[in-house]
């Protein structure tokens, strides 16, 4: 199956897309990918870490 890719780059995007990532993963499994562009490097991963 082809992949579904979520692309984020800042902390707010990480926070707001984390639940979308989890919901998609529940439905579509490992074909769902999360890619970070590193637009705001140090702020980014604080969001998903807690989800």
């Amino acid at each position: 199956m082809k992949s579904i890719v979520i692309i984020i780059g800042t902390r707010p995007e990480a926070i707001k897309m984390a639940p979308v990532y989890l919901a998609l993963k529940k439905r579509l499994g490992d074909s769902v990918r999360l890619v970070s562009t590193g637009q705001h490097k140090e702020l980014l991963w604080q969001g998903p870490k807690f989800l």
């Binding site: 082809k2 692309i7 707001k16």
Partner: peptide, 14 residues
């Protein structure tokens, strides 16, 4: 990835 769909959020340059 050759993705079937791409998802983005909001209004950033990303």
């Amino acid at each position: 990835e050759r993705p079937a769909a791409i998802i983005g959020h909001g209004d950033t340059t990303t």
